[in-house]
Design a protein around this nucleic acid. Structure first.
Lengths: 109, 109
DNA sequence: TTTTTATATCGTAATATTGCAATATATAAA
DNA sequence: TTTATATATTGCAATATTACGATATAAAAA
């Protein structure tokens, strides 16, 4: 034991959990915050902005990228990362969906 | 090392990360799904619904509760859990905020 | 009171995440 | 070519998460 039993859950549940998990670290929230407020998106700038070592930031960027929350483009010998809105929209839709179902219900407990 | 360096980030970033992290497991998504579609919210029903052992479900419920995503009320010798919309709303607001800032920008990369 | 039912907690094994120094890779500049 | 710059990968230690059997707790039923 110790590993998440993903095979017990639906594709949708796993996908949402993967998205949320990628957001589940303050460094990765900080990266998204930074990318959303700044015009450039060069990796080095993100490394300078964050209080973590370059390999650590690189790892967080990789996780955001794997989750589909950001995408990177090669730009000379630098890499430009930007937010991919589609993934965020999925999370947003889910939350909105849950909220709506909840608000339609009579009182609970 | 190995622990998240929460002290390096803002309160808001840490809070959002905590919320997202709580959503970051398919079992916890499944619990919210279930709570949002069903009228009852007795813990035992959640345990029966999920393909995990009772202590495991109890632990996931505890995490959702710690994150403020659900609240539990004692009901006889059972416990009734329901979704707390406020926390979900926070995540939603954040995502909407990021999305808006992104869409106001000129092209990236 | 004894037993049953419902939930939480403890203890622990398996696995995953976080963070970084050292190093690799690959493009740009000299 | 050599050197500098930018980013990724590797390896590893510290820590956290996941899962569950065993057990505790506490209310309900018998």
């Amino acid at each position: 034991m110790g590993a998440t039993k993903a095979e017990y859950f639906t594709e949708g549940q796993n996908e949402l959990a993967r998205l949320a998990k990628a957001l589940g670290h303050p460094a990765r929230i900080a990266i998204l915050d930074y990318l959303s407020t700044v015009d450039t998106c060069i990796c080095g700038d993100i490394v300078n902005e964050l209080p973590l070592a370059q390999p650590t930031v690189s790892q967080h960027l990789k996780e955001l990228k794997n989750a589909g929350l950001i995408k990177g483009t090669i730009e000379g010998n630098a890499i430009c990362y930007c937010i991919d809105e589609t993934a965020l929209q999925h999370l947003n839709d889910y939350i909105a969906h849950i909220s709506e179902r909840i608000s339609q219900r009579t009182t609970c407990c």
